[in-house]
C-alpha cells in the first residue's frame, strides 16, 4: 500500500509499511501489516489498541527484536535518526539498543534478571555503552536510581529484584532505560501491572524524565486515560493496522474511525451509572482470521457492502489526522446511520 502522508520534517523515528509475519502450524500470519508513523524529536506518540492488535510487536521491530519464527518482511523501512535500522550490522544495532533507543517493558519482574542486583543491571548497561571503570559505572547507576525517585539508592542498588516492590522494580527499569540518555524511549504498557497510585507516580516520572532530556517516546498502551495524560499524538491500531491517527486533543474531541469511537464509548464513566454501556459487538479477531475488506467491518455499526469487499486506505484528513474508513469518502452514510438509529 502506498503511503500518501506528507512526511514530517526530520523525524527521529520513521516507520514505513512495516510488516511482520509469523510462520505457524496454521500457515503464515501477518500480525503487523503495513504500519507507518513518524515520531518527532521530543514528542510522545501513543500506540493504542487491544490485545492482539500488533502494537507490542510493532514496538519490537524498532530495535529489530523480532525472533524466529517471526520475520520483518522486506519492503519494511525503519529510519532511526536517519539510519536504516533494518540494514544495520549487528554491532551498529547493539550501539543503538539501550543507548540511543531504550525499552521499558510491562512486567519488570520478568524483564529484570533475578540473579543480579538492581545496581549491577544498570551498571551493566553503562559498561556496555561507555568506557570507564567498574566503580564509575556503579556510581552512575546509583545516581540514576536516585534520579528516578528511589529513596536511599546506595542501599537499593545492592538489592535484588525480588526484594523490591512492583513500583520500585519499574523505577529500576526506567533507570536502566534512561541511564544512557537515549533519544527514544519505547515504553510497552509501562504502568499496566501497577496499582493506580503507583501508576500516577510513574507516569509523572516518565513525563518529567522525558521532558528534561528532550527525548521522544513511543508509548504502547490500551488505556485511553494514560494516552490522554501522556501523549501528544495518538495512533490507534486494530488487527495489525493503524486505523486512525491524530493529535491527542483532536482524537478525544472527535474520533473519526468507528473503532476509536466504540472504544471511547465503551469506557464506564460518570453519568452512565447503572446504565447499559455502549459496546462493540464481537471480539478482536486473532491474526490469521482477519476479514477481507475492512477488518473492522463485522463489528462496525456503519458497515455496508463496500466495507466487506474493499479494504479502505488510510485517508489523510489534514492537520495530521487520518482514518482508515470508507466513511471518509461517503460521509452521508454516517448521518444516515445516526438518523436510522434515532428513528
Amino acid at each position: 500500500m502506498t503511503d500518501t502522508r506528507t512526511p514530517m520534517s526530520d523525524p527521529l523515528l520513521s516507520l514505513r509499511d512495516v510488516r511482520v509475519t509469523f510462520r505457524t502450524a496454521d500457515g503464515l500470519i501477518t500480525p503487523v501489516d503495513g504500519v507507518s508513523f513518524d515520531i518527532a524529536r521530543g514528542e510522545t506518540l501513543a500506540l493504542v489498541g487491544e490485545s492482539g492488535c500488533g502494537k507490542s510487536l510493532t514496538a519490537l521491530t524498532i530495535l529489530r527484536l523480532i525472533d524466529a519464527p517471526g520475520r520483518i518482511e522486506p519492503g519494511s523501512r525503519i529510519l532511526f535518526d536517519g539510519r536504516d535500522v533494518l540494514t544495520l550490522g549487528d554491532k551498529e544495532l547493539r550501539g543503538i539498543r539501550g543507548k540511543q533507543a531504550a525499552m521499558i517493558f510491562q512486567e519488570p519482574m520478568t524483564a529484570l534478571n533475578p540473579v543480579y542486583s538492581a545496581g549491577e543491571q544498570i551498571a551493566e548497561v553503562v559498561r556496555t555503552h561507555a568506557d570507564g571503570s567498574r566503580s564509575a559505572a556503579w556510581d552512575r547507576a546509583v545516581a540514576m536510581l536516585g534520579a528516578v525517585g528511589i529513596p536511599s539508592p546506595e542501599i537499593r542498588a545492592k538489592q535484588f529484584p525480588h526484594q523490591l516492590s512492583g513500583g520500585m522494580r519499574q523505577r529500576v527499569m526506567i533507570a536502566m532505560a534512561l541511564v544512557m540518555n537515549p533519544s527514544l524511549l519505547i515504553a510497552d504498557e509501562p504502568t499496566t501491572a501497577l496499582d493506580v497510585t503507583i501508576q500516577a507516580q510513574l507516569l509523572d516520572l516518565l513525563r518529567e524524565a522525558q521532558q528534561a532530556r528532550g527525548a521522544s517516546m513511543l508509548l504502547i498502551t490500551h488505556d485511553l486515560g494514560v494516552v490522554a495524560e501522556s501523549a501528544q499524538r495518538v495512533a490507534v491500531m486494530y488487527a495489525g493496522q493503524i486505523v486512525e491517527e491524530a493529535p491527542v486533543t483532536t482524537l478525544f474531541a472527535a474520533p473519526q474511525h468507528p473503532y476509536t469511537q466504540g472504544l471511547m464509548a465503551a469506557m464506564p464513566r460518570a453519568g452512565t451509572r447503572r446504565q447499559r454501556l455502549t459496546t462493540i459487538p464481537g471480539t478482536v479477531p486473532p491474526p490469521g482470521a482477519w476479514p477481507t475488506g475492512c477488518r473492522f467491518a463485522d463489528r462496525c455499526a456503519y458497515a455496508w457492502s463496500r466495507c466487506t469487499t474493499e479494504a479502505p486506505p488510510l485517508h489523510q484528513l489534514g492537520d495530521g489526522r487520518s482514518s482508515r474508513c470508507h466513511l471518509v469518502t461517503e460521509p452521508e452514510r454516517r448521518v444516515a446511520q445516526i438518523a436510522g438509529a434515532m428513528a
Binding site: 500516577a200 507516569l203 486515560g225 494514560v226 490522554a228 495524560e229 491527542v248 486533543t249
Partner: peptide, 23 residues
Amino acid sequence: ALLSAIPLPDPLAPRDRIVLEGD
C-alpha cells in the same frame, strides 16, 4: 488520592492530582 490518581480520558483535563509518596 485513589480517585485523583485515575488517568482521565480527556487530554484537556487539569492535572491537579494528589500523588501519594512511596509504596
